[in-house]
């Protein structure tokens, strides 16, 4: 017995409704472990979220986070976790965008809580939420020069002098 429960009938219902409503714009849907995962073109992500919220009872936004897949055509991604508390059902919505044009419509008009999550995605990945009321850096300093969670940004503090390669064989 796996350590998680799958809500197959709810998953099927959501999949059917979304495929009917979004057609080819719903790029893929698959079940990863216990959660259904939908990928949608970024132009219609707001519409999809609103549909899920209003029609399918996903009233609770669990989290929003950015992704970076270097080397792919659509490098940056944004992942939404939604939760329907009435049905005890979670789903995941993904959308991908090119590095040159990292813009998605904001979800702050649907959930007030999306505010800081989108600011975090902007701070970490440089994903712009269009229409966000106050899109500025949240965790890093205002004048931070880069988007640190992108894969090409180095983790380690560059000012350390006690770590040289001759000592550690790096």
């Amino acid at each position: 017995m796996p350590a998680f429960a799958i809500k197959a009938d709810r998953d099927q219902l959501v999949t059917d409704r979304l495929t009917a409503a979004f057609g080819a714009d719903l790029l893929s849907h698959e079940r990863l472990y216990d959660v259904m995962c939908f990928t949608v073109v970024k132009e219609r992500v707001h519409e999809l979220l609103a549909f899920l919220k209003n029609e399918l009872d996903f009233g609770f936004l669990t989290s929003i986070c950015g992704m970076h897949h270097p080397g792919e055509a659509l490098e940056l991604g944004l992942v939404y976790h939604l939760h329907s508390m009435h049905n005890g059902h979670r789903i995941r919505v993904k959308t991908y965008m090119a590095l040159k044009d990292p813009q998605v419509p904001t979800a702050t008009d649907l959930w007030a809580g999306a505010n800081w999550m989108e600011r975090e995605a902007w701070d970490f990945f440089g994903i712009k939420a269009v229409g966000h009321p106050n899109l500025k850096r949240i965790l890093n300093m205002e004048d931070f020069p880069a988007f640190p969670m992108r894969k090409d940004y180095p983790l380690e503090d560059p000012t350390r002098q006690d770590k040289n390669d001759s000592m550690f064989g790096r």
């Binding site: 986070c65 976790h81 809580g113 800081w116």
Partner: peptide, 26 residues
């Protein structure tokens, strides 16, 4: 919440932490 994306390597490809404080303090 822990959102873990694994690409089969020894480290996570991406780990997102849903920190309740961060979300409700806003």
């Amino acid at each position: 919440g822990f959102y873990l994306v694994s690409d089969g390597g020894r480290t996570p490809f991406r780990l997102h932490l849903r920190r309740p404080c961060f979300i409700y303090y806003q």
